[in-house]
Design a protein around this nucleic acid. Structure first.
Length: 338
DNA sequence: AACACGGGGCT
DNA sequence: AGCCCAGTGTT
């Protein structure tokens, strides 16, 4: 509980600041359409506003409503998502649209509890959608809030730790206003994205600095606590480049593991394949460093192409599929075939 | 609790 | 080069 030297609450001071200095012109703030807010919230998971803006407009033009999204080919959704990363979000987005058609009369459900049952929507996103679409007072806890609250409440430790996360949710709940839920959620995120930044927080201009624990102790940049460093394992991966005129051979990956269910260059066996090494580079995942070797294969026997698993794609067509980054890079640098 | 996802921004 | 982010789902 913040000590109240000021006679105004945390939320009152934050809302006053936001009215004067906050962002009010973002595309997803212009309506209370649950569909448009939902799409924005999913895109904004682990992706910054500047990146989302462009994709968001194009996505809504292509999929203007829930039914359009539910009924299109999943490859069309992946194509619209291409370059945003975290492609599971796109698959879950369409799956949720289809579930809404089947189970919720073609609309997104209007309670956080029901939203939480849908794929790709967790506690924070469920509350954010209801908060924005119904102006409800609900706590959210994204990366910005974790930073703001860890500092204001003086909560040590890494937010990925369950106990720390629990303390942060509690701090979020304690600071909620009685009204203006939608504005308050936006204000919290705006504060974290601007004044209360990771480095160089602008505490002199901050509306809640007077009772901020981190500011009082001058430990702003030490909160929130860092993730414990863990050594990455190294894994070799051979990606095979089979060509046939202007086409390349792609493989649909299994539903689990790295790049689940995505189209990819076929993965080679551990022993060296016979063929020229086209490219060699490293791709970093959270716990693995992939050492990727792209190998040009001299010949593809027709019987090797099993229906459903492997498929020939024109290179330009393949590049529109929404491929893993390393695969996109390999295809883009492929020499033109003669 | 650990892992998978991923491009981009920042120091 | 390392760290972080408008997180969630799977194992």
């Amino acid at each position: 509980m913040p000590s109240c030297r000021s006679n105004k609450t945390f939320a009152e001071r934050l809302l006053n600041w936001w009215d004067q200095h906050g962002r009010h012109d973002l595309p997803w703030q212009q309506s209370r359409s649950a569909y448009r807010i939902w799409v924005a919230e999913i895109m904004l998971q682990q992706t910054q506003v500047a990146t989302v803006l462009h994709y968001y407009q194009l996505f809504l033009q292509r999929f203007p409503d829930l039914q359009t999204l539910a009924c299109c080919d999943v490859d069309a959704v992946m194509s619209a998502w291409s370059g945003l990363g975290y492609y599971r979000r796109a698959v879950n987005l369409q799956r949720t649209a289809q579930l809404c058609l089947q189970q919720h009369a073609g609309k997104l459900p209007d309670t956080a509890e029901q939203l939480l049952q849908l794929p790709g929507i967790g506690r924070s996103t469920a509350n954010a959608i209801i908060s924005q679409s119904q102006d409800a007072v609900l706590p959210i806890l994204d990366g910005n809030l974790k930073r703001v609250l860890a500092r204001h409440a003086g909560i040590p430790g890494w937010p990925g730790d369950k106990q720390v996360e629990q303390a942060l949710w509690q701090a979020a709940i304690e600071r909620l206003p009685a009204q203006r839920g939608a504005d308050y959620s936006q204000a919290c995120m705006d504060l974290g994205a601007s004044l209360c930044s990771r480095h160089k927080p602008a505490c002199n201009d901050c509306p809640v600095a007077t009772d901020c624990r981190a500011c009082a102790e001058q430990i702003q940049t030490q909160l929130p606590g860092r993730k414990p460093r863990q050594p990455k394992t190294v894994r070799q991966m051979q990606l095979l480049v089979h060509r046939q005129a202007d086409q390349v051979l792609l493989e649909k990956r299994p539903a689990t593991g790295i790049w689940a269910s995505m189209w990819c260059l076929p993965e080679g066996l551990q022993q060296p394949e016979t063929g020229a090494v086209l490219m060699q580079f490293s791709h970093e995942l959270s716990h693995v460093s992939l050492r990727i070797k792209a190998v040009q294969m001299p010949y593809t026997a027709p019987h090797m192409v099993r229906e459903g698993q492997l498929q020939w794609y024109a290179r330009e067509e393949a590049l529109r599929l929404g491929l893993p980054k390393p695969v996109r890079d390999i295809l883009q640098q492929l020499p033109v075939h003669h």
